[in-house]
Design a protein around this nucleic acid. Structure first.
Lengths: 194, 194
DNA sequence: ATTCGACCATACGCGCAAGTATGGTATGGA
DNA sequence: TCCATACCATACTTGCGCGTATGGTCGAAT
C-alpha cells in the first residue's frame, strides 16, 4: 500500500477537484478571461487530453470552480458572523473580518469584472442579494427602520465592492498596512452606529 | 448646394467621429468586449473596408472613442461643480448631479469592467485619481483633516463605482425612481457633513 | 469632361483557443 | 498474470474576429 496519493505533492494523476482548485487560482490571479484550458493544463503539468476527460467544456470547469468557491468561503464567513448577537458588534466584526480576508475577495472581484458573462451573472446576483440582506438585517436589528436599513446596507456593500474593484485589482492610490487599517476604521465609524 | 450633409439622418459617407460615437454606444450598451469592427460596421450600414480606412486597428478606435468620452463628459461636469464655492453645497450638488447622469456612467462602468485591458487601465487610473482628489479637496475645505478627507473621499468614490457595478449594469435589487432618490439622499446625509 | 482622392465592397489570410478523434500507459483487482 | 478502467498525449478540425489586398464608386475641383 503506497502513501496516500491524495497528499503527494506532485501526483501523477489528477482529479476534477484539482482542476477546479487550479482554475480558482488562475481566476484569482489573472481574472476569468485568463482561464484557458491549454495554459491551465501546462500549469498542472499535463495536456488538454486530460482536461476533456474530467470536464466536457471550459464553461463546465468555470461553473464547477465557482460553485466550489461559493460553497466554501461563503457559508463559512457568514455562519461565523451570525453567531454574534449584538448587531453593532456584529457589523464591526464583519467589516474587520472582511478587511483581512484576501484570496476569497480576489475571486469575487474577478467575478464582478466578468459579470457580463451569462455564466457568472446569476452567481453575482445571488451572492450580492445574500450579503445585502445580511447587512440589512443587521442594520434593522441595530434600530434602523426598514428603509434606512436597506439604504445603509446598500451603501456599505457598494463601498465594499467598489473598493475591491479600484484597489484590490489594479492598485489605485496604494495604501500601506497602517493606512489601510485606518481606512477600515473610518468606514466603520462612518457606516456603523455607535 | 445640397442640404448640410452633416445632419442628414442616413449619410452615405462616414467620418472617424461617427465611428467613435457608434463605438461609445456599443460600449455603453454591451461593454468593451462587445466592440467588434464587423458588427459595428453592420450597425452603421457599411463593411469593414470602411472602418480600416478611418482607423488602423480596433484598439485605435477604442482609444479614440474613450478619449472623446473623457474630454466631453469629464471636463464638463467637473468644471460645473468647481464653480460652487461652499464645499458642502458643492458635494451635495455633485452627488445629485452624478445621480442623474446616465449614459456617461454606463461607459465608465463598462470601462471599469474592462480595466484589465492595458488600453483602458491607465484611463481608469487617471480618471479615478482626478475624481478622488476632487472629493478630497472638497472634504478638506469642509473642515476634514487631510487623513479623514482622503478616507471619506475614498469611501464616497468606492460607493459610487460599486453602485455602478451592481445596479447600473445588471440590475441588482432594482429600485424605482422614488426609492432611488431616497437612496441618494441617504448617501448624502451619511457622507456629507451638515 | 476628366481626374483625383475620399470612402467603401469583396475576398482572402491568419492566429488563437475550444473542442474532437484516437491511441497510449499505468494501476488495481480478479 | 492479465484485463479493464482511469487518466493522459498527440494530432487534428473548427469558428471567430482581426487585419490585408485590391479594386470599385461618387463627388468635387480643374
Amino acid at each position: 500500500m503506497p502513501a496516500n496519493p491524495q497528499n503527494m505533492e506532485s501526483r501523477a494523476r489528477l482529479s476534477a477537484a484539482d482542476w477546479e482548485q487550479a482554475a480558482l487560482d488562475v481566476v484569482a490571479a489573472e481574472g476569468v478571461a485568463a482561464l484557458a484550458v491549454e495554459s491551465l493544463a501546462r500549469v498542472l503539468g499535463v495536456t488538454k487530453g486530460s482536461f476533456y476527460w474530467h470536464f466536457p467544456t471550459r464553461d463546465a470547469l468555470l461553473k464547477a470552480a465557482i460553485d466550489r468557491w461559493e460553497r466554501r468561503d461563503e457559508d463559512e464567513i457568514i455562519s461565523q458572523v451570525e453567531a454574534i448577537s449584538d448587531p453593532r458588534l456584529r457589523l464591526r466584526d464583519l467589516f474587520q473580518r472582511v478587511s483581512r480576508e484576501v484570496q476569497s475577495h480576489r475571486i469575487y472581484a474577478a467575478l464582478l469584472q466578468a459579470s457580463d458573462l451569462p455564466l457568472v451573472q446569476p452567481v453575482i446576483e445571488r451572492i450580492s442579494r445574500r450579503r445585502l440582506s445580511l447587512l440589512t438585517d443587521a442594520y434593522r436589528e441595530a434600530g434602523f427602520d426598514a428603509r434606512r436599513a436597506a439604504h445603509r446596507a446598500r451603501l456599505a456593500y457598494t463601498a465594499y465592492s467598489g473598493f475591491l474593484q479600484l484597489n484590490q485589482r489594479h492598485g489605485m492610490p496604494r495604501m500601506d498596512q497602517d493606512e489601510y487599517q485606518a481606512y477600515v476604521d473610518h468606514v466603520i465609524s462612518t457606516l456603523v452606529p455607535d
